[in-house]
Amino acid sequence: MDLTNIFESERLRLTEIDPKADAEKDSLWSHGIEYARNRKTNPVRPISALESKKNLEEELKEAENEGNRFHFAIRSKNGEEELLGFLDVANIEWKNGQGSLQIIFGNETTCKEFFSESLQLGLQYAFGELNLYHVCMEIPAYETERTAALEEADFVREACLREIVFHEGTYHDRILFGLLAEEWRMQKGLK
């Protein structure tokens, strides 16, 4: 394991979030409904760059005050370090070694291309750096590509919250996926 390299993979880099610079893209992406849902705008709606900047600033302040959330920008490693999405480990319960990993990309194409790679960065951070015992990811059941990617990465379908997401006029299930630190270590050939 390369201890110096936990924030980068082959094509991606996790960096700090710059609310001023990153708000524009966050606002642009929020005009896509799944992005807005993942950003938890309630109800699902697009937000302006001004609102996005405020949200990002508040999230960072809250993370700092509460000490239970770590929030990164996902950027491309080549050239301009273009912003591709956000990754955070949130709702951490230190006493239980529990946290939820959230990864969102600006659009479907980048998600398809980079989701699995960013997932490995997130897990490495959650288990290797934060020493969590169990990581949870929540995905609406209709997002079959992301659910497949999680199963590919050995996540277990731990719960299915029936009809908890309203989308395109009907109710959909939300799947809760989980991975244990020991499963991740075994997968990586670590002790």
């Binding site: 006493k95 529990q98 731990e158 029936r162 908890i164 989980g178 244990l180």
Partner: peptide, 26 residues
């Protein structure tokens, strides 16, 4: 309420691990 699954080993107390059950009623 129906049992909709369990988050494995979610909670640690007195050196032991227990699951967190998720339940729902429609």
């Amino acid at each position: 309420f129906k049992n909709e699954g369990a988050l494995r080993g979610f909670i640690q107390r007195d050196g032991q691990r227990w699951d967190m059950y998720m339940m729902g009623i429609l």
